[in-house]
Each structure stands twice: as C-alpha cells, then as structure tokens.
Design a protein around this nucleic acid. Structure first.
Lengths: 351, 351
DNA sequence: AGGTACTGTGGGAGCGCTCCCACAAGTGAT
DNA sequence: ATCACTTGTGGGAGCGCTCCCACAGTACCT
C-alpha cells in the first residue's frame, strides 16, 4: 500500500532495490547475482532470480555506467569520407560477424561516422569523453591520426587490416599474401604463363602483401621477375581500367590478370573488351573479395574470398578481451595480437 | 592543494562541479549553460563557456541519462535474418543519410540486429528497458510484431516503407507508385507495346504500389489490362529468373519487362538469355533501386532510383521531432506524418 | 578455549548529472 | 515605503547502480 513512491517518471520499471525487497535480501546481494559473482549462496541466488523474473527487472544501463565507470558499448568507426564503403560486401559481411559475436554479450554497438572533418572532431570529443569501452577500426589509412589518439586515451581498439607489419594495435586480417598466391597458382594451374597484376592502393598494407604473394608465387614457379607485368591501381573501377590499358600496351602478350579487387577487375574487363580480348579465352581474369560484382559480372569472375564474417567475429573477440583486460579485476597479461585468417579461391568462368 | 580528490579513477575528466568552481558560479548555472537555457546572463554564460573550454569539459552521458531519464541515443533495427541486406545500396545509402542528419545533433546511433529469435528477444528487453529514445525501422514485414511493441512501450519510431496505406507509425517512403509509372512510361516512350511486370514480394506494400503504378500507366496509355503479363517475384534473383521463364512461356510476344528490383532484373536477364532473347533488341529491361548491380550488369540496366540518402535524413528528422515531442517541455502537437519522396529514372543500355 | 580464516550478506557512500525549490536583487505599480 | 512580480543564481535531493567496508556465522586450526 505504501512504497509505490519509487515508481515515478520512468513508467515504473523496477529497480535493484525493489528486486531486493521482493527477494528479501539486500541491494548488494542482488547486484552480485545480476553480475554473476560467485560469492552468493545457491538458495539466495535462486530467490533473487525468481524476483528478477517476476518483476521483469532489467538493469538500468545509465546507472551502471555511471557507477562502474564503463559503458558496455563499443564503437564501430566508419572512416570513409565517401561512405560507398557500406555498399561493399566487405563491410556488410563484417558487420554480420560483428553482430553475431556481439549478440552473445551485453555490449551494444555504436556506429560512428568519421568522414568529414566535422565528424572526426565529434569523434575525438566522443572518445575523449570515454563514451565507449572499445573501438573497432575498419580500413584505416596509413597516415590516419586516429590509432594514435586511441593509444593516448588508452582506449582498447582493434583494427581490421593492419597498417604495416609492425602494427601496434591489435589487428585482424585475412591472409592477403596467401590469397594472392592462391590466385596466381590457380592461373598457373590453368596453363597461363604471362600473368599480370593490377595492384591496390600502394599505401595499403594489404595491397603490398598481395603484391608480395603474386611475386613469390611466380618466382617459386620458376618465372623470372618482370616488373612490366605489375601496374598500380587504386581499388577503383577506373583505376583498373587505366591499369589494364597500360599493361596491354606494355605487354600485349599477357594471358592472365590478377586484380587486387573485384571492382578493379571490373575496370580491367572494360579495357580488355575495348582491346578486343576475350575472357577467359584470350585473357583469364581473377579478382579479389568475391563480392556481388564478381557473381554478376559477365563472365562471372573468379575471385579470392576473404572470411569476412569470421573476421568480424574475431575483431569482437579480440576487442572484448582487451576491454576485459583493462577492467580493474583483470590480470594485465594480454600480449598484442595479430590474427590472420585464411582465404579461399572461388573459381568461376573468367578463368 | 586540496580538492584533487574529485579526480579519481576515470582518468581525471573534469566534472560539472569543477567547471563551476573554475567559473566561480554554481553547479546549476553551468548545467543551464551547457543545456542552452535562456535564463543565464550574458556575462555568466561567457565565464562558464571559458571555463568549459579551458578544462576541456565534456558532459558525462551516463550521468545525464540517469538524472534526466533519457539516453540521447536512437537505434537502427536491422530486422533481416540474412543480413545480406547491408550489401544492398539501399541500406548503405540510407545509413549515409542517417549519419549525415545525425552529425548535426548530440544523438548517437545504435545498430541492433534482430535477425534471429535470440536477437529479437534481446531487442525486446532492450526496448522494455528504454535504452534508446527512438527507433528507426527498416524494411519491416507486414506481420512483424515489432511496431506494435513499440507503440505499447510508447517509444517513438519511424518506419521506412510503410506496411500499408494505413500505417500508424510515422513513415518515410519513396514514391513506389510514381517510380513504377516512370518505368512503364519510359518503356512506352521507347515504342514498347507488350510490357510485363515481375513483382516484388506481394506482402510488401511498396511492391503493391509498384504494381498499381504499372497498371495505371498502361491503362492510361490505352492498353487493355492483361493479368497474364504480371508474374509474382520475391525480390530475389532466382525468383526473377523463374518469373521471367513463366512469362516467356505465357506471353512469348512480350517486348519489355519492368522488374520490381535490380536483383530481380538480373534473374530475369538470365532467363531471357537462356531463351535466346537479346537485351534490349528483343526485350527491354528496367529494374528498380539503381544499385551497383544495375551499373555492372551486361548490358547496364535502366533502373528507378530512390532518393535513399534523403530518405535516411527524413527519417531522422521525423524521429527527432517525435522524440522532442515526448520530452516534458514539449507541446503535444505532432500529427502522424507520412513522407513520400520522388524517384528518378536512370536510363541505361538495357532499354 | 581462543585464534584465524573464510563465506555470505547488508547497506553506506558516491558516480556526475538534472530538476526544482529557495532566495537575492532588481523593477515598477500602488 | 510596501507589495508583487521577474530574472538570475546556488545548491539540495535524487536518479539506480557498483564498490567496498563491516560484520555475523561457520569451520578448522592450535
């Protein structure tokens, strides 16, 4: 009859205190049960859990965040100025993995755009205010100041696609080197002999690793190095087209092309068409990413698939480990980790 | 010398109280300045702003949320079980608009996946706990219980793609009816006479509106209604293929097809190929969405573009208006609003 | 018997805000 | 001079948690 006072403006969601009263225990005990502390007797735990269920109690995140000085949220920073980004299956699949991994936890996912200067400014403030426990960084350029900022603020972060071999942040990547080798070995296996490579943006570490894989695969197969068969692209369609045209001019005898992305391959295809080369009869074409474009291209494009969904999962695993490690109870033990996941060649008609 | 006590575990971020001390005013006054209350003298305001700048003060969101019983966060719910969804430019572009509109505000964006039953359960709890101020709903099925739940909980929500003409939630949509008319009128203008339509999933309101637009455009051009020219698809590639095959069987004389999505059109293209029909020579093809697939198809696909980025913006505008309306100070005035944005036909080689 | 250790529990203090009441000072009508 | 507002301001109370200290109870040593 009394004690209705606690139910106020919020629409009457039950509080810890109400659960405690119902279960006939103290506030601290309920908190322990909610947070899975082992220091609670079985009988008490059961009583509390019953009260929680009856009242439909859900902890108030804001109160928890305030009291415990954590947020139970992580941010996914989308750095591209042109957020075409999303349209890439790369991103959507990763998000899928991230979502799946996250659904096993209490963490929530914040999407933060950092395309414009304005947005980056806001992001910096945001991080300075420690409004997230950790950050997921996707496709960061070599000269981006963000990773440095994160280190300074001591905010756990995981990057997809390390910036260099000496990446200081925890990172998750696919095996760009191995993927490139798979592509080249596949082409060699199909009897191709003069295999060109259109690279990605050279300031992207992954693109460098693909070049390395391309070179090593050819060398180990006994082919002499030929830099004339390598032309720089930039992951764009237009870049692929230009690079292909340049290659055809330099080495009209080429019979295969390994492009650093599917979009690049789409550009290369135009150039090949214009030059009257048939795919795969005259020139075999292999892309990278196994995106929707690869499936819908004419002819369908052989491509190197990255296990992107798994990468998303792995990023969350790493990040949560780092976050946990920062918490007061943790034993500061975690070594920096770099994960590399295997790729897979998806054969289609273009080769 | 004393008073360093306040700087504790959090790493020393300044609090309201510290700002107040620095500016030589009370806590309440700083709060008023931060929240833009007019009841502050200019001199005081300037002093507080100076202190805020010097200290690099950023409000603690958790404390604010707890005290004010709001979150300053909105959720974007991704309902698809298979989150291929993201790969659609539809989604990525909308996200772009949402991000742009949001960057003018203090609101943060939460991404919530509601594909599996497990995730939906979590979402329900989440909403019950009122952990967001508002919800953005994308591509919701007619029988989804989510909108109902949102109404019950009195959480402001905006839906993209209303579920019916009598949508009760605020909604933003593109002009499906007009877009379909544009497609058909374009084909008629190109001299096509026997125009078929492969529909989207019939339980999607937008798909119905496209059918209406298709019918009306033909009727107004003086064509007799011919239900044999309409075949149900489901927005999928395979559905498009099957529907096209069925149409070719029934009406081998057709000379144009309007597909309810680009992916559907891609499927239709395969069926046309298999039947030996050339595009556009024998059969003209028009899609819907103007996605990456349309640009990369062979031949490039004429398609109806929706102003999706603007739709994202509009959704945020509507939602924020509703959220503001729920706040204590608001004058409960807002009428339910349904926004419809115009489409545009992008002509390419397929027609 | 007393000491020591552990386990389980209650509840005070405090996280950093917002809300709101109280009140000083100013303004103008009576 | 008094009263009645208005404007600007200070600061108490309280949001719902977590953290941690205190303490009762039990167990096992000396």
């Amino acid at each position: 009859m009394a004690s209705h006072g606690a139910r106020g403006r919020g629409g009457g969601r039950p509080t810890l205190e109400e659960v405690a009263a119902r279960a006939g225990v103290g506030r601290g005990t309920v908190s322990r049960v909610i947070n899975g502390s082992p220091r609670v007797s079985d009988a008490t735990r059961a009583a509390v859990e019953a009260a929680v269920a009856e009242l439909g109690y859900v902890p108030n995140t804001a109160a928890r965040a305030l009291a415990a000085n954590r947020t139970d949220a992580i941010a996914l920073v989308v750095p591209e100025p042109e957020t075409r980004f999303f349209a890439e299956p790369y991103f959507s699949d990763m998000l899928r993995g991230v979502g799946a991994a996250l659904s096993d936890t209490e963490m929530q996912l914040l999407l933060i755009f950092a395309g414009s200067d304005r947005e980056r400014q806001r992001l910096a403030e945001y991080l300075a205010a420690h409004r997230v426990d950790g950050v997921l960084l996707v496709s960061v350029h070599a000269d981006d100041p963000l990773p440095e900022l994160l280190s300074q603020l001591e905010i756990p972060a995981v990057i997809s696609g390390p910036r260099s071999a000496a990446e200081t942040l925890a990172s998750v990547d696919s095996d760009n080197y191995g993927g490139a080798r798979q592509a080249v070995e596949h082409l060699l296996g199909r009897g191709r002999r003069t295999i060109a490579h259109i690279t990605g943006r050279l300031d992207v570490y992954g693109a460098q690793r693909r070049i390395d894989g391309y070179r090593d695969a050819l060398r180990e197969a006994g082919h002499a190095a030929d830099e004339l068969l390598i032309e720089a692209g930039d992951f764009s369609e237009d870049g692929g087209r230009r690079a292909m045209a340049a290659l055809l001019e330099r080495r009209p005898d080429l019979d295969a092309v390994f492009a650093a992305s599917d979009v690049t391959a789409a550009g290369a295809r135009y150039a090949l068409r214009e030059a009257g080369r048939r795919i795969p009869d005259d020139v075999a074409l292999v892309g990278y990413d196994d995106s929707a474009i690869a499936r819908h291209m004419d002819p369908p494009l052989t491509s190197v698939r990255q296990p992107i969904e798994e990468m998303g999962r792995a990023m969350i695993d790493l990040l949560l480990a780092e976050v946990a490690d920062r918490r007061p109870t943790a034993t500061r033990e975690l070594e920096r980790r770099q994960m590399v996941l295997a790729t897979e060649l998806v054969g289609r008609a273009s080769s």
